[in-house]
Amino acid sequence: MNRTLLGTVALTVLACSTASAQPRERLRDRLAPAPTETLDAAATVLADLSKIPEKSIPPALLADAQGVVVVPRVIKAGFIVAGAGGHGVVLARDKDGKWGGPVFINFGGGSVGFQAGVEATDVVLVFRDRKSLDRLLEGKGKFTLGADASVAAGPVGRTAAAGTDVKLGAEIISYSRSRGLFAGVALDGSVLRPDPTVNATFGADARPEVARQVAALKEVLDLMSSTTPPADPAKVAPPLPAPLPTPAPPVVPGRP
């Protein structure tokens, strides 16, 4: 009788665990944006920053960068560790110094530095070290800021890099934007992971509209990396392509 009772309890626990896991998976699938949405949001973040060069990332810093991570709309109560989570994109320079194709990542951390009452913020990371960037892109495990690579809150403004030798000694320079305010932010302990599912989805999408989205993102980065002040700061950012419709998620047999 005791064996029967234990067996019943075990089956009940297993059923409850399975039932709770499936809603979590479905919720995660719904929260993960399509690659085109992440590209559009990242380009918008950078375009907005490029319109205020006196309060943006120093061009000299971007000109020497090995790669840039943009994580739009980092949300409190993230999925990797308690604190914050979001989805972003990495662009790395190739051997000729040109921006390569996008790689999509997940972001999580507990020290994003939210302002009081702010539920979401944009995060930008400037990778100055190639080894650190390659370690992230290899995707062999989680990449922790402050542990796998040193990170420091970055300066802002076209001439801000002149007196920041200590900060610029870090491998990664970090920024955030909340409610229109852009500033350096400490991100020690935050975690980055490549997202193989989203990267596979993007790799299979050969639409010319997607290629134009990627080109627009690269163009904004090129403009922000220019050390020559723009003739008309109000027109520094190129027009972005219209957002693409989100494709319907694949139907998985047996799942509601």
Rank of each mutant, 00 (worst) to 15 (best):
residue 144 T to E: 15
residue 87 H to S: 13
residue 110 G to H: 06
residue 212 R to K: 12
residue 111 S to Q: 12
residue 166 V to K: 08
residue 240 L to C: 06
residue 92 A to L: 06
residue 126 V to P: 09
residue 126 V to N: 08
residue 147 A to E: 13
residue 151 V to Q: 05
residue 21 A to D: 08
residue 109 G to S: 07
residue 49 L to Y: 06
residue 169 G to I: 08
residue 102 P to W: 00
residue 19 A to Q: 07
residue 2 N to S: 09
residue 39 L to P: 08
residue 152 A to Q: 15
residue 252 V to K: 14
residue 19 A to C: 07
residue 203 G to T: 01
residue 188 D to N: 15
residue 48 D to A: 15
residue 6 L to W: 05
residue 223 L to K: 12
residue 23 P to E: 10
residue 22 Q to W: 14
residue 222 D to C: 07
residue 173 I to H: 02
residue 251 V to Q: 13
residue 194 P to E: 04
residue 62 L to S: 09
residue 42 A to T: 03
residue 197 T to P: 00
residue 134 D to M: 07
residue 141 G to W: 03
residue 92 A to P: 02
residue 14 L to P: 08
residue 53 P to R: 01
residue 143 F to A: 10
residue 9 V to I: 15
residue 93 R to N: 09
residue 97 G to K: 04
residue 114 F to Q: 04
residue 80 I to S: 07
residue 151 V to P: 10
residue 175 Y to Q: 01
residue 131 K to C: 00
residue 24 R to V: 04
residue 197 T to I: 10
residue 106 N to Y: 01
residue 52 I to V: 14
residue 159 T to K: 07
residue 4 T to L: 12
residue 6 L to N: 04
residue 116 A to Q: 12
residue 235 K to D: 07
residue 41 A to N: 12
residue 25 E to H: 06
residue 83 G to P: 10
residue 209 E to T: 11
residue 92 A to C: 05
residue 225 S to G: 04
residue 66 Q to N: 11
residue 99 W to P: 11
residue 85 G to C: 01
residue 213 Q to F: 01
residue 167 K to A: 05
residue 27 L to Y: 02
residue 232 D to N: 15
residue 216 A to Q: 05
residue 114 F to W: 07
residue 205 D to G: 14
residue 62 L to P: 11
residue 187 L to K: 05
residue 61 L to N: 02
residue 138 E to S: 12
residue 115 Q to N: 10
residue 49 L to D: 13
residue 8 T to E: 04
residue 99 W to G: 12
residue 68 V to S: 05
residue 58 P to I: 09
residue 183 A to H: 02
residue 64 D to N: 06
residue 9 V to E: 13
residue 18 T to Q: 05
residue 145 L to I: 03
residue 58 P to S: 07
residue 41 A to K: 13
residue 107 F to Y: 15
residue 100 G to Y: 01
residue 51 K to C: 04
